[in-house]
Design a protein around this nucleic acid. Structure first.
Lengths: 252, 252
DNA sequence: CCAAAAGTGTTTAAGCTACACCCATGA
DNA sequence: TCATGGGTGTAGCTTAAACACTTTTGG
């Protein structure tokens, strides 16, 4: 079938060599909301998986790169004009049967967003919303996920957690300028463990280029308290040595 | 064009929504040969890129998962009956124009192989061979690479180097049983830096489940010397704390 | 003055580096 | 016995965890 699809290619293949696949991008967009690591999901209105929650995404266009497709969908889905944050490829998922309609290979992307407005606009209500990652995965909450998106979300989560260890990407979760307490809250939310602020401060400050102080500026404490120094993101992208989390699954 | 390709899908899309792509897997197979980190390349006989070296790979079959496609190609390309080693997804590459014939998305895989026989069989000579990674990339050696395979190789290389830091995958480069010197040689080859054997030993031994001693067995020294204890791979997969390399590009 | 949040100092433990030294084998 | 590669002990440095303490604001 449809071997003429590539008939104008200089060296004609026939379609049995390269059956056509649909290629999509799926976005795992993470942010911190109310002190919890959260991700954006959209409610499916049509079968398959009508009524289930799914990662935002869409088909890759004919003349568009994979990264470009992800970058195009990102502002659309988060309802912002320009997306400021971090975007990277996560992994690809292409099991036969993952979409009952046809053979689809999905290239998943991982995005780090600073706190964005809840996308529950009037008519859009319940179509797209932020979910706390724990609530999505703790199953008993009745969140049903479409396709193999649970697998993708789990992979994305692990990547986020790992990346905070050895990169400066935590700063992509906070709006500038930010305090050390803000940054600390990101780590606590993502790793879900206490993490002493006092030693955290020392480690962050000792990594040159992680964060830079905004000259002499301060922020009044909310209900009293000493004003914190304000910072913005530095030039560094990797942490050496890394910030380490204790993992239950691995004992030293 | 060819919208009937998916005409039998329960919810008819038209092809403008999901133009067909070809999907391939490309393999970056790494091993240690003569103390150097090496990878398998095949010589292209046809245009495009005839006479250039390329990563082995091929089209994903219609009813085959991505991992399955990579696992199928791996023994074919390395000319072994069963591939023992490590295989994981690396990343996907889908820029328009990366293949001049048609739109191809390639899912690259990364494989760790113990030292395999040189695949230069008689009639096959110069069709596929192991290249030292440095020689492939140092450009002046006249190795021309097909497609965007230089990018893929660079990504694969960085992944190999990083993985030795925090996983036990170095053991996948040596045949069992092996000595601590063998394992040390893997790290030296991959990282390309001295690494003190004496402290390396301590770190490896202190990580429970990294390697386990083969009961009392020893190997005669080649040109004299004390016989080394023999080990096999343990159950552990991750290293805590990691083995750290010093990186030039990043200063603490 | 008190509560609250920010930030510093200090003790102690743990890990890592470097280097000296001992062990077991072949020639 | 010497050369060679395998393996251990240990002193000293560096990093990190824990916790007590000081600073600066609002009420």
């Amino acid at each position: 079938v449809t071997s003429e699809r590539f008939g104008d290619a200089p060296f004609g293949y026939n379609s049995s060599d390269h059956p056509p696949f649909a290629v999509t991008v799926d976005l795992t967009v993470f942010t911190i909301r109310n002190g919890r690591l959260s991700l954006l999901l959209v409610l499916r209105g049509e079968d398959p998986y009508a009524g289930c929650w799914a990662l935002p995404g869409g088909f890759v266009h004919p003349e568009e790169g994979l990264d470009a497709a992800a970058a195009r969908k990102l502002p659309e889905e988060t309802k912002v004009d320009v997306f400021t944050g971090h975007l990277e490829q996560l992994a690809s998922y292409g099991d036969p049967g993952r979409d009952p309609r046809m053979r689809v290979v999905s290239v998943a992307y991982l995005a780090f967003a600073p706190d964005l407005p809840e996308p529950v606009a009037s008519y859009d209500a319940a179509q797209a919303r932020w979910w706390a990652a724990d609530d999505v995965l703790d199953a008993d909450n009745g969140v049903e996920l479409a396709f193999d998106h649970q697998r993708i979300i789990l992979d994305g989560l692990e990547r986020v957690r790992a990346k905070l260890e050895y990169t400066t990407l935590a700063t992509q979760f906070v709006a500038e300028p930010f305090t050390l307490g803000d940054l600390h809250a990101v780590y606590v939310a993502v790793w879900g463990e206490p993490l002493r602020l006092t030693n955290f401060r020392r480690k962050v400050m000792s990594t040159e280029g992680f964060i830079v102080a905004v000259d002499d500026q301060r922020e009044p404490g909310a209900g009293g308290g000493r004003p914190a120094t304000l910072y913005r993101r530095g030039d560094a992208t990797e942490l050496h040595p890394p910030l380490r989390r204790d993992r239950d699954d691995i004992r030293r």
